[in-house]
């Protein structure tokens, strides 16, 4: 199915958001425009990555997606529901679940399975079905065997997977992850990203991943790059990472391999743009090495 045939799960048009600062009398004395006209269209089942350095508006945008914040201007529809309508908030939060950076701030229960069941319980799901959902969710993130453990005794990556299970148990159509791996070690990071990709591929859950780690982005269907409250680049990972210089200008990283390829190109090695993986780089370098040898002989 072509992505253009799919239904939009998130449709934002010319979104703006202003943070307001109030003085002691409750009057607005300062404001900061964190989003300056962002438009986006995410189809069901897509894997979208959002890049941008701190202060670029990524998290403000993410918080709009489940109506934690509502637009100051423009419109945002999540699963067809207008986020500015108070009555839609419950349904929107159920459709778009959110996972935050710090695993310790998201775990509330003293037993893993109770934590994963907190969301559906709050939604009023019947008890029997809650346990069924918890079972499925914990299995999906590979934490079923820890169901009776205390979350305190889990690693960071495991805690984040429990947090993701808690979101999945609410059966969302879309999961928004705001730097879910920023506080994890490489092993934990790999666990979380593997889990998220798996959910996207097998269950068709739409994923919106906000991250600083370029290596996590290369599997996305589409990458949005944000700077100063606006989307400044958008495309497939290969398209976006072809602009090494433009990304560096807004002080973003590119994947190590892409950067190395760019450095080699600058020094005259005829490599194509947008190399993303070690395999691609070695393959292209091999072609160059052998190609020229053949011509010389």
């Amino acid at each position: 199915m072509k992505s253009s045939d799919r239904r939009s799960i998130i449709e934002g048009h010319d979104l703006t958001y202003e943070y307001l600062h109030y003085d002691d009398d409750g009057n607005v004395d300062a404001s900061y425009r964190a989003l300056k006209g962002v438009s986006l269209d995410v189809k069901e089942g897509q894997f979208i990555a959002i890049l941008g350095h701190n202060g670029s508006g990524k998290s403000t945008l993410a918080r709009q997606l489940n109506a934690l914040l509502v637009p100051s201007g423009g419109t945002l529809f999540v699963d067809g529901l207008d986020t500015r309508e108070e009555k839609n908030v419950g349904a929107i939060r159920q459709a778009a679940g959110m996972v935050f950076q710090n695993p310790d701030n998201q775990i509330i229960a003293s037993v893993v399975e109770e934590d994963a069941g907190f969301g559906p319980e709050n939604m009023g799901v019947p008890t029997k079905e809650i346990w069924e959902r918890v079972r499925k969710a914990l299995k999906a993130v590979g934490m079923w065997e820890y169901r009776e453990s205390s979350p305190n005794r889990l690693s960071g990556g495991q805690k984040q997977r429990v947090a993701i299970a808690g979101v999945i148990a609410m059966k969302p159509k879309c999961i928004v992850l705001d730097e879910p791996t920023a506080m994890l070690d490489p092993g934990g990071r790999a666990e979380v990203i593997r889990t998220v990709r798996e959910l996207n591929r097998t269950d068709g859950i739409t994923v919106i991943l906000i991250t600083h780690y370029m290596e996590e982005v290369i599997y996305a269907d589409r990458v949005l790059v944000m700077d100063e409250g606006a989307v400044v680049m958008s495309g497939t990972p290969r398209e976006v990472f072809s602009n090494v210089r433009a990304l560096k200008e807004i002080r973003l990283d590119v994947p190590f391999v892409t950067e190395l390829a760019d450095r080699l190109k600058e020094r005259g090695v005829p490599l194509p743009d947008g190399i993303l993986t070690v395999e691609e780089l070695t393959e292209e370098l091999e072609k160059i090495r052998h190609g020229d040898q053949n011509r010389a002989s």
């Binding site: 080699l264 020094r267 005259g268 090695v269 005829p270 370098l285 160059i288 090495r289 052998h290 020229d292 040898q293 010389a296």
Partner: peptide, 11 residues
Amino acid sequence: LEVLRKAGVKC
């Protein structure tokens, strides 16, 4: 670059 040059690639 060293390896490529040895292999005769101009760069």
